[in-house]
Simulated scan of single mutants.
Amino acid sequence: MTTAIATPLPADWRDFLALTKPRVMTLVVFTGLCGMLAAPAHIHPVLGFTAILCIALGAGAAGALNQWYEADLDAKMRRTAGRPLPAGRMDRQSALHFGVGLACFSLTLMYFAVNLAATVILAASILFYVFVYTIWLKRRTPQNIVIGGAAGAFPPMIGWAAATGDLTTLPILLFLIIFLWTPPHFWALALFVKTDYANAGVPMLPVVSGEATTRTQIGIYTLPMAAAAIAPWPLGLAGAIYGAAAVVLTGIFLAFVAQVTFRRSVPDDSMAPEKRLFKYSILYLFLLFGALVADRWFA
């Protein structure tokens, strides 16, 4: 008897789109756009669109390269097993070529159409996500999200640099907000998909250190995030519209975090507070950055 060797089914455009992690890309593009619109300089609409396109393509490239490298892990986790590579709809070489091609195209276009500063930061974000987070940290340390979170914090800096050609205090604060937001956001997710990460051998904090430690760390990281989120207002970098929104939105965030942080006895099938925190954390970032743009344009 001979054993048939499985070959990937022909991939279509939806599989290549799935490689880019479009849901993650939405937040990346939005924060990049907000960084651009909050900048004290006007960029030509065509160049602005080009810069945002490059951010989207760069994020897509990073997502594709992440899935290329982590195909074995994705196959072991229920929530990622349907992705193109573990599902057998695409071969790894195609994903690699697609990711590298997108990265090169996004950087080339950003350099020739926009400016060098935005190109350098975009390159740093792609390289950081692929080499530091995906290849180096993800499988080695429960601090993968803490350090690797920097990769997702670059977009507002890229958008700002695209408009101005430089960086000042505000875009650095925007970077810091997302950097500090990432651990409570992802650890809330990790709490209710802990089994997936354990099965795949990924050393996420709940798997390595337990739920109690993870809950405490969520609370610890949220405090400096809250301070960074409100800081642009008292520092005079944003006005009352942003200040009021930041205080209210962050207060709600802290309330959700408190529900998660101070839980100690949790039934296996009851992760409602963790799911609420995860969902709200996404909405929080959209609303907070949207308030910054509204403050800049309508104050």
Score class of each variant (00 low, 15 high):
F298L: 15
R140Q: 13
Q143E: 15
A240I: 14
S209F: 04
A59G: 15
L9Q: 15
G63P: 14
A113I: 05
L235Y: 10
L85Y: 10
E211Q: 14
G48T: 08
T50H: 05
E274S: 06
V260G: 01
F192A: 11
A294K: 05
T164L: 08
F175K: 07
V100E: 02
L9W: 02
D196C: 11
R296H: 14
V29C: 13
V208C: 01
P171A: 14
L65E: 13
H44G: 13
D15F: 04
T164N: 10
T119N: 04
A238T: 03
A163R: 11
H97F: 15
K21D: 03
M90C: 11
T31V: 12
A18I: 06
W68A: 15
L223T: 06
A272P: 00
L167G: 07
P40D: 11
V132Q: 04
T164P: 10
G148Q: 03
L127T: 12
W136C: 06
D268T: 11
V130A: 02
I241N: 01
A238Y: 02
W136K: 10
S94N: 09
W187E: 02
F289V: 12
Q217N: 09
R89Q: 13
L37C: 04
T7D: 01
F154K: 05
V114P: 04
P40G: 07
A123K: 04
T3V: 14
E274V: 02
A227Q: 00
A124Y: 00
V260A: 05
L180G: 05
V257P: 01
Y129P: 09
Q143D: 15
L223A: 15
T169A: 15
G88A: 13
T3A: 15
F175Y: 10
L189K: 09
R78N: 12
A151G: 09
L249S: 02
G48K: 05
W181Q: 02
L116E: 12
A272T: 14
P45Y: 09
V114Q: 01
L47E: 09
L127K: 03
A255F: 14
W297N: 11
T134S: 11
T222V: 01
T134H: 11
P156S: 08
T169V: 15
A258L: 12
L109G: 04
V130S: 01
L19E: 01
I220P: 01
P22W: 00
V24L: 13
I135G: 01
T7H: 11
N199G: 00
R215N: 13
G201R: 08
F49Q: 08
F154C: 09
G82E: 10
P184M: 07
L137D: 03
F154V: 05
E211M: 11
V24K: 02
G101D: 07
W181Y: 11
C34H: 10
G152M: 06
R276M: 14
A64S: 08
L180E: 03
A188E: 06
Y221K: 05
Q93C: 00
Q93H: 12
N199M: 13
F179D: 01
T169I: 14
